[in-house]
Design a protein around this nucleic acid. Sequence first.
DNA 1: ATAATGAATGTGAACGTACACACGAGCAAT
DNA 2: ATTGCTCGTGTGTACGTTCACATTCATTAT
Lengths: 336, 336
Amino acid sequence: MEPEKVRAPNIRDVARLAGVSYQTVSRVLNEHPSIRESTKQRVLDVIQEIGYRPNQAARALVTSRSRTIGVLTTQTVNYGPSTSVSAIEVAAREAGYRITVTSISSTDYTAIRSALDYLLTQAVEALVVIAPQVRVLDAIREMDFGVPYVTLQNADVGGGEHSMSVDQVAGARMATRHLIELGHTEIMHISGPQDWIEAEARMQGYLEAINEKDLRTRAPILGDWTAHFGYYAGLELLRFRDFTALFASNDQMALGFIHACWDSGLDVPGDISVVGFDDIPEAAHFYPPLTTVRQNFAEIGRRAVSLLVSELQGITVDHAQIVPELVVRRSTAAPR
Amino acid sequence: MEPEKVRAPNIRDVARLAGVSYQTVSRVLNEHPSIRESTKQRVLDVIQEIGYRPNQAARALVTSRSRTIGVLTTQTVNYGPSTSVSAIEVAAREAGYRITVTSISSTDYTAIRSALDYLLTQAVEALVVIAPQVRVLDAIREMDFGVPYVTLQNADVGGGEHSMSVDQVAGARMATRHLIELGHTEIMHISGPQDWIEAEARMQGYLEAINEKDLRTRAPILGDWTAHFGYYAGLELLRFRDFTALFASNDQMALGFIHACWDSGLDVPGDISVVGFDDIPEAAHFYPPLTTVRQNFAEIGRRAVSLLVSELQGITVDHAQIVPELVVRRSTAAPR
DNA sequence: ATAATGAATGTGAACGTACACACGAGCAAT
DNA sequence: ATTGCTCGTGTGTACGTTCACATTCATTAT
């Protein structure tokens, strides 16, 4: 109960100890070119010695730049989004930004609105949107809040040029074509939820591949991305064995579906071939190892950041899509 | 190119339009008790109308409170940490805090140091540590940076009272006892990496259960949490079939190990029983569905936040451990 | 030799908010 | 009537930094 509050050292403390003005210290901090090497070193020594840290709040206040990138994501933990967020954090930090993440659980308008509101209160300078529902994008477009943003979803489906994404349509096309090339003609599709952009894109890719060969189009099942759904949908679907292959919109649903196959006494890929999407790290060790479409979530995250940072500096960059990759494992085979 | 920079409205703009002093606006914002209802409403109306948002930076500067909780986590994306972070974000937001996450890839001292340094630069008021290496805790203790912190790892193993965790030792004991009760006497263990606190705790629980019954203690294999490791370790271990059960320190390694069993022509649980740890959502759909130890990552995250928030308000709370739960599925059976 | 230039540094604002204090009005107690 | 208290509101100041501008000094060009 002696020293009361020990105020953190500030720029003036440093200046005093280094025998210079506070402005000189500020210049050292901001790497101003015209500063004598010896002075600079002296200041840096003092900074080091007393453990001075620039006050970000003061900095943000005077520059009116928060150096913060907002990230809007979904509440549910998924491999893809998590990986992207992690990559975004690293890339942002390297670029001198911090990120502030917020997640939305429900998809209703007020929830989206309040999440965006929260981010605006944080004074984010840019925004990465991983929450991939159509409505979110609508809300963003409508609010028009004046910061550059990027969605990690397909541009052509979601609309707008603010996107940085893996070409989901192409990925789904590859997956479906792979099944067709193996000789399958009756191919089911378990999709993601209705208003998810990825779900729609993958469904579109599936339909394109099916239509190319004039195969029978079957109404896709709308799932919820979970293995549980894949399982129960599988149990249902397998009561009528009128298909020999299934393309699931993500690996988890594929896993659940395979589980249902075993429970129904069916062999994968003997009786039914299954393709997933994402290539989560576990997919290679499913039983059987899963054929799937790999997308590089980390790369997308990094590119999103570099795109935004460029935009903040007034540079325009093109939003080239990333091409996904088909990984053929043992869950697919020719029909017998 | 007309309006140049449109300055965001500030507290004085609001005051002017509402016909009060800026201080009154500040009082409304901070819910000061003695303010006339009519005045308050008038101010709120103006705020609403012109879309005023308090400037967080200015606030942080003058109060010297950042209202930020730092989260230190690992770079690699895992279900557990991701779930906890997500829950932390929500809980923190509800408590009026934001979070700033940073991750460390390597475990070397300078990396840890620079991550903590980064968080201190963000002026975090408290810290949640999910990066669960012993060294991280050592570094934190050593730095003594004067903000309350909580680790999501076991107190007794990691040391110190700053912990909020699932009782990993108990969980591992339950898992191992389950195998023993089924009649297994030769039980292997694939552990996590050497210096991870969880890995150590789970190993300890395993050893305790083994020793209780005077079974043969076997040197645990040190893994890296990945399914890949579980697979290759499995291929190696299964060359000598001198065990009938395996307790893997997480579900991914269990999955990889099961994969190795199938590849080696062994049946799970017919030839070998397998128990995992974590109960990731996919575990119920592995082939066979995995017996594992469930821990509630979200709950831990929430409690960590409430603990820190209490501590920031000067209230002391006890750090009761959360008890995990054994989930018996079909990957375990009596030896034959 | 002198003016002009540029490098290196210093001084006075300003950013938007909250806190300490002050002040007037109304009211109860003396 | 005076004092003291509470309620509601206003004024001055500080937080720590950067920006615009000012100043000094050495160097170069005329």
